[in-house]
Design a protein around this nucleic acid. Structure first.
Lengths: 194, 194
DNA sequence: TCATAGAGTTACCAAAGGGTAACCAGTCGC
DNA sequence: GCGACTGGTTACCCTTTGGTAACTCTATGA
């Protein structure tokens, strides 16, 4: 059935296919046989490219996380002031969600996996995002609260996205990004006055 | 070792103990033997009170969800205007997180379970919360966007809480609630002008 | 054309864990 | 004291599934 592929191509194909399968069915409800079937191949082939199910899964998380981080940091870097940073940041985030949306589900969907290692990977990604946002929050509150609020803002984008993605609703990332950014920016300024 | 207990008491005890175990280790990493051990009892006893692992888990989710909803709706009902509703609502939420914090982890922690059924239960709870918040958002944007933003606000509280609870940091729900409410309220008003 | 390397398969193992059948024991009413 | 009710236990089954050993097939280059 499936063509023979050179090793690197096969590896890529497995990664591509796995994102979809894991995103749709969750980690524990997806067996390696399921992945293999979806890739049009048998189980041992998977183990020629990845040491274990965990290993494969973590590779997927890592890749997805990188794409997210790159998109957002690039967008924020191109802005010239706080308000613009907020706007560009959220728009980039939602653009990523709309576009790479299996990856979003993998990282933040309700069915994402939750082992020790995956959790810490996902936490790291979230923390990095929060870290990038933190400076936007007024410096006149202590840094612990600053970080907590930053995590809140990440949750804001995440919550809105999950709502949309999980019910398969199409949405315009520019419009949504603008609205959320307006909301967040006004909120950020309110905390200033604390 | 463990005293004999009348059935309803045993059931309660199992529920109490299960919340902790599941919250700490996640659904899939917790076997029924683990639960039984923690309850000081053996496996078949669990099956005298619950049909299956799923069944037990769903009962826990349901209870936790009810406690959350009751706390928040009561608090919001006692307010007299939008700003106060926001404030009371968030404070009640964070008070619940601080107090019933295994339940929070169970519902929204990184290690929460994700089967078909659990997901839909958790989604229902989230949606109910969002539904309660939605009216606070200006009526001059369409109701789809309204609901999306409401889910965003739920995510805001969730994200901040998860950050705190998962690293075991103590926090003052009143202070945090006030800050987040300030932020959210300012944000909500900004969307008005949108 | 034939040897070789690497892609892929079949058939299997072993552990984990949900769930149950059959049995035991303490206590309460008579 | 005695039967029976109910809380509890031991010992087991059986499916699922991650992981692997040993084999086969196909293409390529000398």
């Amino acid at each position: 059935m499936s063509m023979r592929l050179p090793a690197p191509a096969r590896r890529e194909q497995i990664l591509d296919v796995s994102v979809q399968v894991f995103a749709r069915n969750g980690f524990h409800s997806t067996s390696m046989n399921d992945v293999a079937d979806a890739a049009g191949v048998t189980k041992p082939v998977l183990y020629q490219h990845f040491d274990s199910k965990q290993d494969l899964y973590l590779a997927l998380l890592e890749e997805a996380g990188n794409r997210l981080r790159n998109t957002v940091t690039k967008a924020v870097a191109s802005a010239t002031n706080g308000k613009e940073q907020t706007e560009f940041g959220f728009k980039a985030y939602f653009r990523w969600v709309a576009h790479d949306h299996d990856a979003f589900l993998l990282l933040f969907g309700s069915r994402a996996n939750r082992d020790e290692e995956s959790v810490s990977t996902i936490r790291r990604i979230t923390a990095e995002t929060a870290h990038a946002i933190a400076p936007l929050i007024a410096a006149d509150i202590d840094s612990d609260h600053q970080r907590t609020l930053a995590h809140g803002l990440v949750g804001l984008a995440e919550g809105a996205s999950r709502h949309l993605v999980e019910r398969g609703e199409a949405f315009d990332p520019e419009v949504l990004g603008q609205q959320v950014a307006d909301m967040a920016w006004a909120g950020l300024r309110a905390v200033h006055r604390g």
